[in-house]
Design a protein around this nucleic acid. Structure first.
Lengths: 190, 190
DNA sequence: CCAAAACGGAACCGATCAGTACCGTTCGCG
DNA sequence: CGCGAACGGTACTGATCGGTTCCGTTTTGG
């Protein structure tokens, strides 16, 4: 645990928010768990909402760095994003995607927290598209959106099944999709 | 609006819970919006948690009845579940799946609300499996889990994209999956 | 070394939370 | 008609919410 108050607040808030939900965690808990004084929180952040946004930005960067590291360690195959997810699903403290959870909790789609969460998902789509391009797959952008959809589906399924099985199923579906030849627009447009 | 207090409570609570989240809606709001007296709520339900469970059970039955009606109206093709979803995604008040949202909000996986939500999802899987069997698809159970995963992925994607496009993408992926021949176990087991 | 910044702790604020108790009224049914 | 159940409204409880203020201590850098 870092000794400066700001980092302790961010680390503690991230843990508690992910484990119990943003709304369920009062600033009181964050203060007692982190050992930070009440005034220090409001010296570093204008309010709880701003702490939430800071936590999400931090988690976005850490999550994407972690995913990129896992995938490159596994050889760079786009499908290995599902193997990385499976590792997360198996952890005892797994409770879904912090950003999906945030979008669900902050009902207002224009709220700062919701927007940061949506940005994260778009960055993941871009990352998957880059992986597909590097692997020589056509229609990288549209396919990336399909794979991101499978990732999110696997995540919410893993939450309720409490097993990593959905990662394998989503990976198999993605493999079938990539093998199903160049279907230009698997969706609505054109 | 029904004139008995219990039905008014359930209808009002369902609307508010879905639109703003369970934790965000206090009983005060439910009472003022529904016009029901405070005491009447606690005459019909031991507490807010029990009202939540009753609302979820009610919504589970209504949702599955609606889905079955739409699919059969569209000819009974399993893929038409995505067309039904697209109709929901297009509605202005669409805010994802009430049961996914509930599982996210009620972090404790053993809480009554979480369990009711998980039951709903399992019933949807069973329903999709039945559709696949009736259409003569092999491996109905495993394939149904993959399709349910695609449905949930489409739902959470639609929340952040704020367009029905993800329903079409998920449908296309499901079509590719069903056409990819009899792959016995697209996942972990066996 | 010493000043200034950073900090932890506690008291306090108004608002809101779920839940209880009691009131007088309205309604349905015999 | 009349009686009892169902009901809406109000006042209240103790707990908790996010946020403010002040004070004394610790830490840090010139």
């Amino acid at each position: 645990m870092p000794r400066n108050a700001r980092e302790r607040l961010l680390a503690t808030a991230e843990e508690l928010f992910y484990a119990e939900g943003i709304k369920s965690v009062g600033v009181e808990r964050i203060l007692t768990v982190s050992g930070v004084g009440r005034a220090s929180l409001y010296r570093h952040f204008p309010g709880k909402d701003d702490l939430v946004v800071a936590v999400l930005r931090r988690r976005d960067e850490n999550w994407r760095a972690w995913m990129a590291e896992r995938v490159s360690a596994l050889g760079g195959d786009p499908l290995s994003v599902f193997d990385a997810l499976a590792e997360r699903f198996a952890r005892a403290d797994f409770r879904g995607c912090a950003f999906i959870n945030t979008m669900v909790e902050s009902a207002d789609p224009d709220s700062p927290a919701h927007l940061v969460a949506a940005e994260h998902k778009e960055r993941v789509v871009s990352y998957v598209a880059r992986l597909l391009e590097e692997s020589g797959h056509p229609h990288a952008d549209e396919t990336a959106r399909a794979i991101a959809l499978l990732m999110d589906g696997a995540i919410v399924t893993a939450v309720r099944e409490r097993t990593p099985a959905s990662a394998g199923r989503a990976r198999a579906v993605a493999a079938a999709l990539l093998a199903s030849g160049p279907s230009p627009n698997p969706g609505t447009a054109d």
